[in-house]
Protein backbone atom coordinates (compact mmCIF):
# COMPACT_ATOMS: atom_id res chain seq x y z
CA UNK A 1 0.00 0.00 0.00
CA UNK A 2 2.75 2.45 -0.88
CA UNK A 3 1.95 4.98 -3.60
CA UNK A 4 4.19 5.45 -6.60
CA UNK A 5 6.93 8.03 -6.13
CA UNK A 6 6.13 11.70 -6.61
CA UNK A 7 7.58 15.14 -6.17
CA UNK A 8 5.98 17.05 -3.30
CA UNK A 9 5.28 20.79 -3.33
CA UNK A 10 3.86 23.00 -0.61
CA UNK A 11 3.43 26.46 -2.17
CA UNK A 12 2.35 29.47 -0.10
CA UNK A 13 0.11 31.15 -2.66
CA UNK A 14 -2.21 30.42 -5.57
CA UNK A 15 0.27 31.81 -8.09
CA UNK A 16 2.69 29.12 -6.95
CA UNK A 17 0.04 26.42 -7.31
CA UNK A 18 -0.97 27.58 -10.77
CA UNK A 19 2.59 27.71 -12.06
CA UNK A 20 3.26 24.11 -10.97
CA UNK A 21 -0.02 23.01 -12.56
CA UNK A 22 0.90 24.81 -15.75
CA UNK A 23 4.39 23.37 -15.86
CA UNK A 24 3.38 19.75 -15.32
CA UNK A 25 -0.11 19.65 -16.82
CA UNK A 26 -1.83 16.30 -16.35
CA UNK A 27 1.04 15.02 -14.23
CA UNK A 28 0.31 17.46 -11.41
CA UNK A 29 -2.57 17.42 -8.99
CA UNK A 30 -3.54 19.37 -5.89
CA UNK A 31 -4.18 17.71 -2.55
CA UNK A 32 -6.36 19.13 0.21
CA UNK A 33 -6.99 16.77 3.16
CA UNK A 34 -5.84 13.80 1.10
CA UNK A 35 -8.54 11.54 2.49
CA UNK A 36 -9.89 10.67 -0.93
CA UNK A 37 -6.69 11.14 -2.92
CA UNK A 38 -4.17 9.26 -0.73
CA UNK A 39 -6.27 6.07 -0.59
CA UNK A 40 -6.52 6.23 -4.41
CA UNK A 41 -2.76 6.78 -4.70
CA UNK A 42 -2.10 3.84 -2.36
CA UNK A 43 -4.28 1.62 -4.53
CA UNK A 44 -2.40 3.03 -7.54
CA UNK A 45 -5.72 4.08 -8.98
CA UNK A 46 -4.46 7.66 -9.08
CA UNK A 47 -1.01 8.44 -10.38
CA UNK A 48 0.29 11.83 -9.34
CA UNK A 49 3.93 12.45 -10.28
CA UNK A 50 3.69 16.02 -8.94
CA UNK A 51 1.65 16.47 -5.78
CA UNK A 52 0.77 19.99 -4.69
CA UNK A 53 -0.23 20.19 -1.02
CA UNK A 54 -2.64 23.11 -0.50
CA UNK A 55 -2.33 23.29 3.29
CA UNK A 56 -0.19 26.46 3.39
CA UNK A 57 -1.84 28.33 0.51
CA UNK A 58 -3.11 31.75 1.51
CA UNK A 59 -6.76 32.62 1.06
CA UNK A 60 -8.24 29.12 0.98
CA UNK A 61 -9.17 28.97 4.65
CA UNK A 62 -11.95 30.47 6.71
CA UNK A 63 -15.72 30.71 7.01
CA UNK A 64 -17.33 34.13 6.41
CA UNK A 65 -20.97 35.05 6.78
CA UNK A 66 -22.14 38.49 5.68
CA UNK A 67 -25.06 40.13 3.85
CA UNK A 68 -26.97 36.88 3.56
CA UNK A 69 -24.03 35.14 1.88
CA UNK A 70 -21.85 32.36 3.24
CA UNK A 71 -18.30 31.83 1.99
CA UNK A 72 -16.44 28.64 2.79
CA UNK A 73 -12.77 28.60 1.78
CA UNK A 74 -11.90 25.43 -0.13
CA UNK A 75 -9.69 24.20 2.74
CA UNK A 76 -12.42 24.45 5.39
CA UNK A 77 -12.69 21.01 6.96
CA UNK A 78 -15.79 19.06 7.85
CA UNK A 79 -14.78 19.41 11.52
CA UNK A 80 -14.62 23.22 11.14
CA UNK A 81 -18.09 23.25 9.57
CA UNK A 82 -19.43 21.25 12.53
CA UNK A 83 -17.72 23.44 15.15
CA UNK A 84 -18.70 26.83 13.70
CA UNK A 85 -21.63 28.08 15.80
CA UNK A 86 -22.38 31.04 13.52
CA UNK A 87 -22.63 28.75 10.53
CA UNK A 88 -24.82 26.24 12.35
CA UNK A 89 -27.16 29.10 13.30
CA UNK A 90 -27.73 30.29 9.72
CA UNK A 91 -27.26 27.05 7.75
CA UNK A 92 -27.86 24.12 10.09
CA UNK A 93 -28.16 21.68 7.18
CA UNK A 94 -24.37 21.94 6.68
CA UNK A 95 -23.63 20.70 10.21
CA UNK A 96 -26.31 18.03 9.99
CA UNK A 97 -24.75 16.69 6.78
CA UNK A 98 -21.12 17.01 7.90
CA UNK A 99 -21.86 14.99 11.03
CA UNK A 100 -22.94 12.13 8.77
CA UNK A 101 -19.70 12.07 6.80
CA UNK A 102 -17.10 9.44 7.68
CA UNK A 103 -15.74 9.51 11.26
CA UNK A 104 -14.03 12.07 13.51
CA UNK A 105 -10.51 11.44 12.24
CA UNK A 106 -11.57 11.80 8.61
CA UNK A 107 -13.62 14.93 9.37
CA UNK A 108 -10.57 16.71 10.85
CA UNK A 109 -8.81 16.29 7.49
CA UNK A 110 -11.49 16.16 4.78
CA UNK A 111 -12.23 19.55 3.22
CA UNK A 112 -15.25 21.06 1.52
CA UNK A 113 -13.12 21.81 -1.56
CA UNK A 114 -11.82 18.26 -1.83
CA UNK A 115 -15.26 16.82 -1.23
CA UNK A 116 -16.96 18.84 -3.97
CA UNK A 117 -14.05 18.76 -6.46
CA UNK A 118 -13.48 15.01 -6.13
CA UNK A 119 -16.46 14.06 -8.32
CA UNK A 120 -17.09 10.76 -6.52
CA UNK A 121 -20.86 10.13 -6.59
CA UNK A 122 -20.54 8.87 -3.01
CA UNK A 123 -19.44 12.23 -1.62
CA UNK A 124 -22.15 13.95 0.42
CA UNK A 125 -21.27 17.63 -0.12
CA UNK A 126 -22.02 17.83 -3.87
CA UNK A 127 -25.73 16.97 -3.47
CA UNK A 128 -25.92 19.17 -0.40
CA UNK A 129 -24.41 22.07 -2.33
CA UNK A 130 -26.91 21.56 -5.16
CA UNK A 131 -29.73 21.66 -2.62
CA UNK A 132 -28.57 24.98 -1.14
CA UNK A 133 -27.78 26.34 -4.61
CA UNK A 134 -24.09 26.94 -3.94
CA UNK A 135 -21.58 28.38 -6.38
CA UNK A 136 -18.06 27.02 -6.83
CA UNK A 137 -15.25 29.51 -7.45
CA UNK A 138 -12.35 28.44 -9.64
CA UNK A 139 -9.07 30.04 -10.59
CA UNK A 140 -6.90 29.00 -13.51
CA UNK A 141 -4.43 30.34 -16.04
CA UNK A 142 -7.25 32.25 -17.74
CA UNK A 143 -8.36 33.90 -14.50
CA UNK A 144 -11.29 33.37 -12.20
CA UNK A 145 -14.74 32.02 -12.94
CA UNK A 146 -17.63 30.57 -11.01
CA UNK A 147 -19.88 27.60 -11.73
CA UNK A 148 -23.19 26.79 -10.02
CA UNK A 149 -23.08 23.48 -8.11
CA UNK A 150 -26.14 22.45 -10.11
CA UNK A 151 -24.12 22.70 -13.36
CA UNK A 152 -20.77 21.36 -12.08
CA UNK A 153 -21.12 17.57 -12.27
CA UNK A 154 -20.87 15.82 -15.64
CA UNK A 155 -20.18 12.16 -14.81
CA UNK A 156 -18.34 10.17 -12.13
CA UNK A 157 -15.06 12.02 -11.49
CA UNK A 158 -15.84 14.41 -14.38
CA UNK A 159 -16.67 17.97 -13.45
CA UNK A 160 -16.73 21.39 -15.07
CA UNK A 161 -13.35 22.12 -13.45
CA UNK A 162 -10.43 22.05 -15.90
CA UNK A 163 -7.29 20.14 -14.85
CA UNK A 164 -5.29 23.34 -14.44
CA UNK A 165 -7.97 25.05 -12.33
CA UNK A 166 -8.11 25.17 -8.53
CA UNK A 167 -11.29 25.50 -6.53
CA UNK A 168 -10.81 28.40 -4.13
CA UNK A 169 -14.16 28.75 -2.36
CA UNK A 170 -17.77 27.73 -2.16
CA UNK A 171 -20.41 30.43 -1.66
CA UNK A 172 -24.09 30.07 -0.95
CA UNK A 173 -27.02 32.24 0.02
CA UNK A 174 -28.16 31.74 3.64
CA UNK A 175 -30.73 28.98 3.19
CA UNK A 176 -34.40 29.68 3.90
CA UNK A 177 -36.89 27.58 5.85
CA UNK A 178 -36.76 24.05 7.25
CA UNK A 179 -33.95 21.65 6.44
CA UNK A 180 -32.96 18.00 6.65
CA UNK A 181 -30.05 15.86 5.56
CA UNK A 182 -31.04 12.19 5.72
CA UNK A 183 -28.56 9.46 4.89
CA UNK A 184 -28.89 5.68 4.85
CA UNK A 185 -25.56 3.89 5.27
CA UNK A 186 -24.52 0.34 6.10
CA UNK A 187 -22.46 1.43 9.09
CA UNK A 188 -21.16 4.62 10.61
CA UNK A 189 -18.41 6.05 8.42
CA UNK A 190 -19.82 4.54 5.25
CA UNK A 191 -20.75 6.34 2.07
CA UNK A 192 -24.49 6.65 1.43
CA UNK A 193 -26.69 3.89 0.09
CA UNK A 194 -28.98 6.85 -0.46
CA UNK A 195 -29.02 10.37 0.93
CA UNK A 196 -31.36 13.33 0.54
CA UNK A 197 -30.79 17.04 1.16
CA UNK A 198 -33.98 19.06 1.54
CA UNK A 199 -34.81 22.72 2.24
CA UNK A 200 -38.47 23.78 2.41
CA UNK A 201 -40.06 27.19 2.95
CA UNK A 202 -43.52 27.16 4.57
CA UNK A 203 -45.91 30.13 4.49
CA UNK A 204 -49.42 29.95 5.98
CA UNK A 205 -49.21 26.17 5.99
CA UNK A 206 -48.33 26.00 2.30
CA UNK A 207 -45.02 25.08 0.66
CA UNK A 208 -43.60 28.25 -0.92
CA UNK A 209 -40.25 26.87 -2.03
CA UNK A 210 -38.58 23.49 -2.02
CA UNK A 211 -35.14 22.25 -2.93
CA UNK A 212 -34.30 18.54 -3.17
CA UNK A 213 -31.03 16.82 -4.09
CA UNK A 214 -30.05 13.15 -3.86
CA UNK A 215 -26.65 11.51 -3.31
CA UNK A 216 -25.08 8.28 -4.61
CA UNK A 217 -28.05 7.35 -6.74
CA UNK A 218 -26.52 8.21 -10.14
CA UNK A 219 -23.03 8.91 -11.39
CA UNK A 220 -23.60 12.54 -10.36
CA UNK A 221 -25.65 14.12 -7.60
CA UNK A 222 -29.26 14.61 -8.69
CA UNK A 223 -31.08 17.92 -8.18
CA UNK A 224 -34.69 16.95 -8.79
CA UNK A 225 -36.65 19.92 -10.10
CA UNK A 226 -39.75 17.77 -10.62
CA UNK A 227 -39.70 16.61 -7.02
CA UNK A 228 -39.49 20.25 -5.88
CA UNK A 229 -42.36 21.19 -8.18
CA UNK A 230 -44.52 18.40 -6.76
CA UNK A 231 -44.38 20.04 -3.32
CA UNK A 232 -44.91 23.66 -4.36
CA UNK A 233 -48.26 25.14 -3.39
CA UNK A 234 -49.31 22.05 -1.43
CA UNK A 235 -49.76 21.59 2.31
CA UNK A 236 -47.42 18.62 2.06
CA UNK A 237 -50.24 16.12 2.37
CA UNK A 238 -49.49 12.50 1.69
CA UNK A 239 -50.36 12.79 -1.99
CA UNK A 240 -47.87 15.62 -2.48
CA UNK A 241 -45.05 13.76 -0.74
CA UNK A 242 -45.82 10.65 -2.79
CA UNK A 243 -45.74 12.72 -5.98
CA UNK A 244 -42.38 14.19 -4.97
CA UNK A 245 -40.95 10.74 -4.27
CA UNK A 246 -42.26 9.44 -7.61
CA UNK A 247 -40.75 12.42 -9.43
CA UNK A 248 -37.39 11.88 -7.69
CA UNK A 249 -37.41 8.18 -8.62
CA UNK A 250 -37.79 9.25 -12.24
CA UNK A 251 -34.65 11.37 -12.02
CA UNK A 252 -32.22 8.97 -10.32
CA UNK A 253 -30.39 6.15 -12.04
CA UNK A 254 -28.74 3.93 -9.42
CA UNK A 255 -26.59 0.97 -10.35
CA UNK A 256 -26.11 -2.31 -8.54
CA UNK A 257 -23.03 -2.60 -6.32
CA UNK A 258 -22.05 -3.87 -2.88
CA UNK A 259 -24.66 -1.54 -1.35
CA UNK A 260 -27.44 -3.48 -3.07
CA UNK A 261 -29.41 -4.06 -6.24
CA UNK A 262 -31.20 -1.28 -8.12
CA UNK A 263 -34.66 -2.07 -6.74
CA UNK A 264 -33.35 -1.87 -3.17
CA UNK A 265 -31.62 1.44 -3.79
CA UNK A 266 -34.78 2.93 -5.26
CA UNK A 267 -36.73 1.70 -2.26
CA UNK A 268 -34.23 3.23 0.15
CA UNK A 269 -34.14 6.48 -1.86
CA UNK A 270 -37.93 6.77 -1.47
CA UNK A 271 -37.85 6.11 2.27
CA UNK A 272 -34.99 8.56 2.82
CA UNK A 273 -36.56 11.34 0.78
CA UNK A 274 -39.91 10.95 2.56
CA UNK A 275 -38.14 11.20 5.93
CA UNK A 276 -36.14 14.22 4.83
CA UNK A 277 -39.20 16.04 3.51
CA UNK A 278 -41.18 15.34 6.68
CA UNK A 279 -38.36 16.49 8.92
CA UNK A 280 -37.65 19.62 6.88
CA UNK A 281 -41.38 20.48 6.93
CA UNK A 282 -41.56 19.99 10.69
CA UNK A 283 -38.72 22.49 11.06
CA UNK A 284 -40.03 24.97 8.47
Amino acid sequence: MIPAAFEYYRPKDLAGVLSILEEHGDDARVMAGGHSLIPMMKLRMAEVPHLIDLQDVDGLHGIDISNGQIRLGAMVTQAEIIDHEGLAAVAPILREAALQIADPQVRYMGTIGGNVANGDPGNDMPGLMQCVNATFHLIGPEGERSVPARAFYEAAYMTAREDEEVLTAVTLPVPDGGYAYEKQKRKIGDYATAAAAVQIVKEDGVCKAASIAMTNLSDTPVFSEDACAALLGTALDDAAVKAAVTAMLGDIDPSEDNRGPVAFKKHVAGVILRRAIERAWSRA
Partner: peptide, 22 residues
Protein backbone atom coordinates in the same frame (compact mmCIF):
# COMPACT_ATOMS: atom_id res chain seq x y z
CA UNK B 1 -6.97 1.75 4.29
CA UNK B 2 -8.14 4.59 6.58
CA UNK B 3 -10.86 2.54 8.26
CA UNK B 4 -9.75 1.00 11.56
CA UNK B 5 -8.11 3.85 13.49
CA UNK B 6 -5.35 1.66 14.98
CA UNK B 7 -2.82 4.14 13.55
CA UNK B 8 -4.45 7.19 15.18
CA UNK B 9 -2.08 9.88 16.46
CA UNK B 10 -2.63 13.52 17.40
CA UNK B 11 -1.20 15.98 14.90
CA UNK B 12 -1.36 19.70 15.72
CA UNK B 13 -4.37 19.03 17.93
CA UNK B 14 -6.29 16.80 15.52
CA UNK B 15 -6.87 13.05 15.69
CA UNK B 16 -5.46 11.70 12.45
CA UNK B 17 -5.12 8.26 10.88
CA UNK B 18 -1.39 8.26 10.25
CA UNK B 19 -1.71 5.66 7.47
CA UNK B 20 -3.49 8.36 5.47
CA UNK B 21 -0.95 11.14 5.73
CA UNK B 22 2.44 11.52 4.11
Amino acid sequence: TSHCGACTVTINGKSVKSCTMF
